[in-house]
Each structure stands twice: as C-alpha cells, then as structure tokens.
Design a protein around this nucleic acid. Structure first.
Lengths: 223, 223
DNA sequence: CGGGTTTTCGCCTTAGAAGCGAAAACAGGG
DNA sequence: CCCTGTTTTCGCTTCTAAGGCGAAAACCCG
C-alpha cells in the first residue's frame, strides 16, 4: 500500500511480532479464505489497517513463489499494488507505520523486492495511464500534482509539461474555482480534477499501426 | 504457449480426458511441486509438450483465483505467457493441438479469458519491447518479420515502418547476407537478427521526464 | 534487353512532448 | 496606490519518434 506523504513515496509496513523474521517490517497480508479471490482477500486484510474507501486503486503485481522465500512452511504469495490518495491520513494500528520506499528498513522475507516491483509498476503506469488520480485528492492544483508525480517518479517534473500532457490526453479537467495563494503571495492556482477516477490507459501501444480510417487520407502528388 | 503458424496466432491446447470439463480444450499446466517455483513448474509442464529450448520467452500473466472458477476443489492458477519461434514445429502428443487464438473451440474453465489476456499482453509488448525475437527465428527478412507482427497484432503493419522503428531503437541488426528471392523473382531480401534475445523494454515511459544529461542540455532551470 | 516483382531507401509530414520566456494574478510594504 | 517579489499560466518554438509515399535497387524470366 503506497502513498505520497511529506514529499516522498512511502509504503505501509507492519512489524512482525513472531518468528520467523520477528521484529522485521513486513507487508500487510494474510491467507486466502475459501470463499474469496486474491483481490478480495487483500482488500479484507488491508481493511484492518485503513478504511477501504481510502484505497483508490488495487492491482495485481506478481506471484512470488521461490520455495525458500519463507523459512519453514511453503508460502506462495500474490503481491498487490494498492494506492492511497495524499489527502487522507488513516489512523494506524500500533504495529504499523509508513516507511519511505527509498531507504527501507530491514524487511522480512522478500518483501523489499516486492516493494521495488510495486514502485516500478507505479512509475510506469503514471506515464501512460491516468493513475495519478489514485495518488491525488479529488481536487488539486497543478503544483501539488507536480509534487506528487515528482515524489512517485523520483525526478523533478515540469508543471507546465505535466498539465499540457494530461490535458491533451483528456485526463484533466478544470473545476472552475481556484485555490488561495500561499503565504508568500503569488497568482492563485486553478483547481483541477481527473476526468475519470478509474484506471484508463492512454494507448502507448499505437506503434506499427496504420492511422485510423477517420483521418483524411493525403492527396497523391505527382512531380 | 503461443506461436505464429500459417499466418495466424495460435495457442497450444490439450484436450481433457477427465471430468470436470471432459472433452474440452484446456491450457497445459499442472500442480506446483514442493521444490520448484511457479515458473519452474510451468516450464516442467511444457517440457512434456515441446522441447524446452524451443521456448524463447516465458513470463507471468496473472493469478486467477475466483472461488468457483473450477468446479469442485478450490484451484488458484498462475497463468503464464510462453512464446515459441515460428521456425520450429514440435512433435506433439496425441491429445494436444494448435488452435487459432481468434476462434477458439469451447474451452475448459476460464481458459478462454486467460488466452485473451496472453494475446493482449503479447500485442502490447510487441510495440514497446523487442519481444518479436521470441516469435521470429534467429535470422529473418523484414517481410517475414512483417508477417509475424501482422499475425500477432491482428492488423497489417508496414514493412518499411517496422524496419525503421526497430532499427532506430537499436533492436535490429543486419547479418550481411541475403535470402534468395521467391519463385516470382524480386530483389533478394537482406537478412536481419535481433540484437538481443532477451526481453528489453524500449522505455515508452519517458514521459514527464527531462532529457538525459548526456544529451546537449540547454541550461536546465528548475523551479 | 525489357517487363514484372519484391525490397530498400530517401525525403517529407504528422503528432506528441519539452523548452523558454513573458503575461497574468495575487500579497505586502513603502 | 504604486512598486516589487512570487507563483501560476499561456503561447510560441523546438525536438524527436513515427508514419506516408514514391522512386531506385536488385532480382527472375522470357
């Protein structure tokens, strides 16, 4: 479960109380019940940590199944990526805490690798989908959206270009109202929202493809 | 396990001899052994159908875990995408056969949905990776590569553009030799090969990103 | 050698993304 | 109330990858 907090991408971890790997930080999760699928299971497990309505996106990552990934009994895990918008701060149980994805503490089992996979997936999808909606609040300024993207991607993003690209793709729409300026003045920023709050892919795969028929064909020229 | 055969994308299926879903066509697979991971398991299962060395690419697709996806006992399946180059024709056991992905026969369980997922994944990755290497032989002409891409993608692609894009990305390199012309004459086609035979992603995710430092940077200023 | 065929190449257009500077809109102080 | 500093937004230009199109290249056959 990832969230951007105080300018960095963070992950919710839980400190193990029992062996194996007692005291180390682990991802939330648990066993699959007989009447649920894996996504239902992970949503159920996470509901013990945060309110389910705060979870704006959940998707499968991969299966981790190395025979020795957990000492003792054989455990096959299906890893998920879950996202929480930046404007909520759930009350957490005693044994859980947010940790910056860059610079994780000593983690249990192969969970560090899983977090890395989740971060990579998030970074990739931020560029070719509208997944930013899952990190941002319902309304936001371009500046705050820029900070979210910068934190999640790990490099600085131009606010100008961010707004241009997302707008051209039809993902961003203005609310009409503006946010009050900061303490040091400045022009008040316009508020935006994402046009859709479900995952939408903006076809990055239109390669090798002939243009759609609805575009007018160009007239032939003769020398 | 997918392969392009006689101009269409096909999948290797196995006809079930036992209930449930007796007589229907199913994907190859089986139970996970205690000392292997899921990829090792699927490779072992497939080795009963084709030579392992003919399998040029294997990757995880997704976990299918609906409680009722298989009648009777609970079965959680990890689906894989496997690719076989077009220049091999493995000898098959009696009960297995290739089927065109477009127009599958009545399939067992949720296997039709899995095949659809595999096809979509292949199509996507053909456009932003070098995954074509797994469908093509070691050496090929641009025309045959065009046919492979057309069959897998489901629409006609331009040989000119295909060569240009793959070359610009540095994925394609000429072998120096040429293939003999066909029965109706024509200029002999140059032979090419993929520069790498492992999966390489050609960053379709370079969005919102400032240009790399090794390019003549024009005095970048950041807010 | 000329006609038919297939491949390859060069030049141009299109589309999306990024660079850059200036205008717009606010706060605060003199 | 004007001037300065700050932040946001907009318009124009540039860059890069992909696609269109026709001509040249290189072969076969009669």
């Amino acid at each position: 479960m990832l969230q951007v907090r105080s300018g960095s991408l963070q992950v919710l971890l839980w400190q193990r109380a029992l062996d194996p790997d007692k005291g180390r930080w682990a991802l939330p999760g648990g066993r699959l019940g007989p009447t649920e699928d894996v996504e239902g299971s992970i949503r159920r497990q996470l509901a013990e940590k945060v309110d389910v309505r705060q979870l704006t996106h959940v998707e499968q990552l991969a299966v981790f199944s190395a025979p020795d990934r957990v000492p003792g009994e054989r455990v096959v895990a299906t890893a998920f990526l879950g996202l929480v918008p930046c404007d909520v701060d759930p009350v957490l149980p005693e044994d859980t805490a947010w940790h910056s994805v860059a610079g994780l503490p000593e983690s249990a089992f192969d969970h560090a690798a899983i977090v890395e996979r989740a971060r990579d997936r998030l970074r990739a999808k931020l560029s070719y989908t509208n997944l930013g909606f899952a990190l941002a609040g319902r309304e936001f300024t371009v500046s705050t959206l820029r900070e979210l993207y910068s934190a999640a991607l790990g490099y600085r993003v131009s606010a100008t270009n961010l707004q241009r690209v997302l707008s051209r793709r039809g993902l961003l729409e203005p609310t009409g109202s503006t946010a009050p300026p900061g303490p040091s003045g400045g022009r008040p920023a316009a508020l935006f929202r994402f046009a859709a709050r479900g995952l939408q892919v903006t076809d990055p795969f239109a390669v090798f493809r002939p243009p759609p028929a609805d575009r007018p064909a160009r007239a032939a020229r003769w020398p």
